[in-house]
Design a binder for these strands. Structure first.
Lengths: 173, 173
DNA sequence: CCTCATAACATAACAAGTTATATAACACGA
DNA sequence: TCGTGTTATATAACTTGTTATGTTATGAGG
């Protein structure tokens, strides 16, 4: 059965990118289950990372930092608040803005993720991307094939992982 | 405000790909509004293209051809059926399988899209991708910047578009 | 033939993104 | 100070993807 989305090339690049992104997120979720045992949904990771990097942020700034719409952020923050990972307080000077900050539990989770899941994902994805070459569509072909052939979880070497903060510019970009 | 998803590189590649894919789809939708005037949702285009390329297909085969799950296809087909674009008939030999085929209206729409939207999108996306170079993350940086700077609709040259069927291997891949 | 496993599709519930709009707080000019 | 416009967030409705599960049809063995 022909892969139509792949065959149409530029015409369906949007669908293609979404599809690969979802596959990556699904495999990341699997890896999270094995590694960290936390049931943290994959899209919540960037939120935690943003708060870790930048400290407390408003809803709007979080939306900008993650490049998505404000209502989406509001909903995610509500869920994370209900799980005790973040606290939301309204700003003294301007009570329209609510400031989102990591709670103690949130910070602990971040520390755990920095030591386990986040570097593991970086390495596994870097491994899947190793050897990619050529124009964009070709690299996407290669990446999609690589992910199909071997999932992120089986790309775990088992070797000791460096902590997140020490790995920044090496594997990450 | 730092773009965290971009900054985290491989660790958030899934989110990144989804984000770019959604942006592309949104801009494709805009282009569709200007060009074709049809309110066809962007994800329905690959379904039409698959049926156009392969003739009538079962739900399961469509799911394979598009690389998504069967329930998603079922729902999309139901909507397209309700809009008169496809017909669904159950197979004589095996009444479990339902065969999806373009209706007359569906075929007319496909012909229209082949003459307008599909080649236009191919060209516009190819234009946005022109000059991309380097490793995957770098090409994604460049692509995302290109889409932000100039939308697909403003990449329309206005010059005559070749018909879809004559453009296959040239711009498409 | 009847049963049971399998296969195809449908349905339901959920997740996470979007747009459009409502609400509430602020800021400024008449 | 009183509207009035703007800004920040919340809410609602929708889309489109997912998984889990139900239903019906097929086919194969006893």
């Amino acid at each position: 059965m022909e892969d139509v989305v792949r065959a149409l090339g530029y015409a369906t690049l949007g669908s293609r990118l979404k599809r690969i992104g979802e596959k990556l997120q699904a495999q990341t979720q699997d890896l999270a289950g094995e590694l960290a045992g936390t049931g943290l949904p994959t899209p919540h990771n960037p939120v935690l990372a943003a708060l870790d990097r930048q400290g407390p942020l408003s809803i709007g700034d979080l939306a900008k930092a993650l490049g998505q719409s404000q209502p989406g952020i509001t909903r995610m923050i509500n869920k994370m608040k209900s799980e005790g990972l973040v606290s939301v307080t309204s700003l003294e000077q301007d009570r329209r803005v609510s400031t989102v900050a990591l709670t103690e539990a949130g910070r602990h989770l971040v520390d755990h993720l920095k030591a386990t899941l986040w570097p593991a994902v970086s390495f596994a994805v870097a491994d899947a991307c190793a050897g990619l070459d050529g124009p964009l569509l070709q690299q996407l072909d290669q990446l999609e094939a690589a992910l199909t052939e071997q999932s992120l979880s089986t790309r775990q070497t088992g070797q000791p992982l460096p902590d997140w903060d020490t790995l920044d510019l090496e594997t990450r970009s």
